[in-house]
Every structure is written in C-alpha cells, then in structure tokens.
Nucleic acid binder design. Structure first.
Lengths: 144, 144
DNA sequence: CATATTGTCAACAAAATTGGTTGAGAATAG
DNA sequence: CTATTCTCAACCAATTTTGTTGACAATATG
C-alpha cells in the first residue's frame, strides 16, 4: 500500500515491481492485491502496461482505515471493537471484565494515533535497532 | 491473574475455583497456571489445602509487565519491541520501514497506558455493549 | 486476428499457532 | 498410607497464516 501510495498519480504499478520492493513472492502478492482490489482500496488493469494503483487518494485514507478494512477492527480482542463488536468466547460478563476495559482504552489510543496518519503522510523513520553488536548493554533498558 | 490478585493475602486459591470463575476447563487452566508459576508470577502448593497465589504483590505488577512476561513483548510486530527486539521476516530494511515507525508509536502508547495500571488497581468497568437490540442504529458510530 | 503481457481467482497445501486433552507423577495434610 | 491438589511432557484437533498451482480473462500491439 505504501508503495502504491508513493506511486499515486503515476499510472499502474506492476505486481513484479511491488513484489521486488516488498521482498515477497509474486504469486502470493497476487492474492493480497486481489483482496485489496475486492475491498475497493486498489484498482487494477490487466494486460500489457497493466498493474495496480490506489483507488483512493492517499490523503483520503488513514492507517486506521486500512487496518479496519483489512482486519475488521483496530481492537486486539473482539469485545474491544467499537464497530465490529463481538463477544469473546469463554469470557466473563462483559460489563465485569477488567481486561476488556483496558483493551478498550488501548484500542482508543491506537485509533487516535492511526486515524491521524494518512497514507500520504511523510512518516518519521526510526533508525534500525542496533543488533548483535560487540557489547549490547548500552544502557538502553527502555522496556519491551 | 485478576482472580488471584483479588484473593491476594488470603492464602492459596484452588484450581477448581479459578476455573469456575473464569469459565475455562480446569485441565487447561493447569497448563496456564503452571506456566505462570514457572514464570515466577505465581506460587503454588500441592496437596490438601494447596493452590495458587500471586508471588508478587498486586501493587507491584502492572498489566504491561504481565504481557511482557507472558507474551514476550507489548509490541504488535517483533521489530517494534523495545526490549525483545527481533527482525520481522520478509521485511524491508528496518530503518526504512514506515510500518515499523508507526508500530513503535503504538507500542509506546500501549506501554504508557498498561504500565500505569497495576493488578491492584480498581479498573473503571465499561458497560457491556448493547447487542442485538430491536433497532441498533442508536447513533453511536464511534468507529471500529 | 494472434500473441505476449498482466491481473483474477478458486483450490490446494505446508507450517505455525491456538486451544485443549491425557495420563503418569510428585508433594502435602491428615 | 490415603486423599487431595498441583506438575509436566506428550499428544491432538481446529484454525490461521503463508504460501503455491494452474486455468482463465482482459488488454495492448503488430
């Protein structure tokens, strides 16, 4: 999606290009892209010079929308979804569930962040984690 | 865990009691409780009048800790974990990954919330979702 | 029209995860 | 020594994730 957002307005992008950029098997990507197309997020054209492009301007779609469309909800548990609400199985009464109360809060915070970021936004990149250095107790015990 | 927190200081709680309260097969709960015991969150005693109790005072353990101990990390994707960091497979370079940048933010927000709530805290309960009423477009389109 | 190109889609399948069961112990109290 | 209660490894079944296969449909070009 981000790849398509970057190419928005520049005509169709071909499967092979996206697959290469995303390091994912081309055939598998067809499944994903076809799904996105069915969801209406992406348009496509077949044949020579065919490909995929965003059906919606990247400024008009947030990361929150994306997750809602593709995963059904931003919530971590079904009972904490605000729209696609569903009872968790084997759970206590919802009105008495402390876990649910917390998960609703987590969902709301996540939504507040992800609904504010559009596919067109320049996202502040974070440097890669320093892995397997000679010594790695560099004082950064920032939590998990 | 919440059940054990409520009973903290009142001696061992037996498997059967927790299984009943949590609506979960007793035999399955043994697996979970034994795991919690191995993780050091819970202590246990066998034999008559045996049972489980919290190894740590409920005021000294946050929901964030709980999730870190049991799931390894608060992050939704391995590369967004601050402590148990791991590369996601089939992913682009971490330093270039916008998804990771967002997921790190989500993790931080989640941590800020869950690290601030202790097992001993009285959690504001949320009324159960109104399900399957006669008409349910009650104007609450609050998002998913 | 023929052909090469490129997406579509249903069906299958391997691997991992989730949710759970079984059954043989081992500790503890009485 | 017996009843109670937790321990733990080894399964098992269902589901989800992560793909693969192959036949087909649309499009552009010559």
């Amino acid at each position: 999606m981000q790849h398509l957002a970057d190419r928005y307005g520049h005509g169709p992008v071909q499967l092979a290009e996206i697959a290469g950029a995303q390091n994912i098997p081309a055939k598998f990507l067809t499944v994903i892209l076809s799904e996105l197309t069915r969801y209406g997020l992406v348009d496509s054209r077949r044949g020579r010079d065919g490909g995929y492009w965003l059906a919606i301007a990247p400024i008009d779609i947030s990361y929150g929308d994306l997750i809602r469309i593709m995963r059904g909800s931003l919530a971590l548990v079904p009972c904490a979804s605000r729209f696609a609400h569903e009872k968790c199985k084997n759970c206590v009464e919802e009105g008495d569930c402390r876990t649910r109360a917390l998960m609703l809060d987590v969902r709301d915070r996540t939504a507040q962040l992800l609904d504010g970021v559009r596919l067109s936004d320049r996202i502040e990149l974070v440097p890669a984690f320093e892995a397997e250095g000679p010594v790695n107790d560099t004082g950064n015990d920032t939590g998990t």
